[in-house]
Amino acid sequence: MGEVTFLDVSKRFSLRVDGEVHHVQALDRVNFTVMDGEIVALIGPSGCGKTTALRVAMGLDPASGGRVIVDGREVTGCGHDRGMVFQHAELLPWLSAAQNVMFGLEMKGIRGATLREIAEKYLNLVGLTDSQNRRPHQLSGGMKQRVGIARALAIDPKVLLMDEPFGALDAQTRETLQGELLAIHGRTGKTILFVTHDLDEAVLIADRIVVMKNGRVQEIMNVPLKRPRPDLGVVRGTTEFAETRYKVWRAIHDGATVH
């Protein structure tokens, strides 16, 4: 099933800065597992390697060492078993919302009437049935990201990989979409690995949080909040939320584990 395992994954970059070659260790022997149906958040300060980890899992960047295993198979490139949601949605501007969703499906070889049917089903899932013929420019930021989510989900991947999907949205839209993502997860049961720099978001959505720092996994924490979480406003009021949030905050800020 949709299990993702990082086995000693390393990634080195070479950057040329003013004629000097700098080596950046973006990932340094990263190990963790996302269980089937689980939501895991990757969090850490910018430059900690969280986005790189996600890109390696997607197959957009090759690992310099180690392997990522998705559903028992080693990642060697992009595949239909993983669906990517990009930070700024990255919809194709010349296609309508529905056509953007269909683009992914067509790449999977789906043709004819089924194509439209599946696209409509997922646009409906994200609440965009009425806006499916609009082009990205005619959609708000939140709606764009909904299309991005529908596009990734439509190919029925085993794992949903999300790169700061709500980071560019305003606070209200972000909260709405966080709730919707959990509702979608409740219905589809997809394994979700998502990158965020938002502490609240990580605790509200995830079952476990992987805190990264300097390309390493600093700590993996369980979120002691039960599912389903139909009302995130209520979740915010719980002591478990506050305590977990504080623990993650401490882990990010000084690396000291709070017991």
């Binding site: 992009c78 010349w94 992914g104 790449m107």
Partner: peptide
């Protein structure tokens, strides 16, 4: 680059990326 990565992430062949992403862009 990100638009091309959209194509890649959905496993679009190089020719499809050229025709359906690069050309319209």
């Amino acid at each position: 680059k990100t638009l091309i990565e959209v194509g890649k992430s959905f496993v679009a062949p190089e020719t499809v990326i050229l025709r359906r992403i690069v050309l319209p862009a």
